[in-house]
Design a protein around this nucleic acid. Structure first.
Lengths: 152, 152
DNA sequence: ATCCTTGCAAAGCATTTGCAGTCAC
DNA sequence: GTGACTGCAAATGCTTTGCAAGGAT
């Protein structure tokens, strides 16, 4: 675990160095939390959890740290229609399912076939496509109205 | 054109009726504008354009109308990280490319292969998947930094 | 006549910003 | 020591809401 932490810290230091930014305990705590969860937390949720590591941290600093991580490529920002953004500490190519009831987000293990993406971008006239995002929507077992209506 | 307008108005009346809501000139103007553009406007852009049809309309009413249309299934709301939502008057299954420079959104003509979606949702343990959303991101010719850097 | 909608202004909420003190380098 | 980072509070920007007047059925 201590070993793990050193590894993670090193990743962060390297990425910050590369973009001329400094290592701070606040950024480390945010990064550690993001790496250790698959709950795709909002900035506020990150703030709440990180307070136990860094008692005096402010919400503004959490926002700034998250933005820094996104800028370094160590996290990504997910935007849905429900008001607040969510952050994801996974940097590999993957996608999500989101529950329309409770808003929870789950990772998918597969990704879209590359040929499929190529085919789709052929209609993006003149664009240089650099990425894509796929999101499935639906209902988790707890929130499914059909299950609730007819609990067979 | 007048014929077109009557057709569109009829669609709106029917959808509103079905959900127990009233037909108003404001809702009609918003709907007409959304149907007639493929620019995926923000609420504010809708407001600006619709003012020429309905001079006294307020931004709040535009927001309410857009939400009404979405509720009736006559439009959909696109949410990106850049602050404000965009609205789309197309109701058929389709996807988008978004320019990371200027934020413009273009429609794609193809959609993802159904089998591909089936395959992906197999890892969404317990979820009942009801829909999906795909968005390509990249740069339009005007905003492409590579083109700007090296205009070969 | 009923009660849904509008328009206005004020409120709400997530996020950003200005700035003085503090800390990493 | 220098310049970047933090924390606080105030500001911003999009969106929503409360309410009285107006309009659709």
């Amino acid at each position: 675990m201590d070993h793990q932490h050193r590894g993670i810290e090193e990743i962060l230091r390297t990425a910050l160095d590369a973009s001329g930014q400094r290592f701070t305990e606040q950024r480390a705590a945010v990064f550690r939390f993001l790496r250790g969860t698959s709950s795709h937390p909002t900035a506020d949720e990150v703030f709440l959890h990180v307070r136990s590591d860094v008692p005096g941290i402010s919400l503004a600093t959490v926002y700034k740290s998250l933005e820094t991580l996104v800028g370094c490529g160590l996290a990504s920002k997910l935007t849905y229609g429900d008001g607040s953004a969510r952050y994801d500490g996974r940097t590999d190519d993957h996608h999500h399912v989101r529950c329309l009831g409770c808003g929870h987000v789950l990772d998918l293990v597969d990704h879209v076939d590359a040929g499929e993406v190529d085919r789709l971008q052929s209609s993006a006239q003149g664009f240089r496509v650099t990425g894509y995002r796929l999101e499935l929507t639906g209902f988790c077992p707890t929130c499914d109205p059909e299950v609730a209506a007819a609990p067979a």
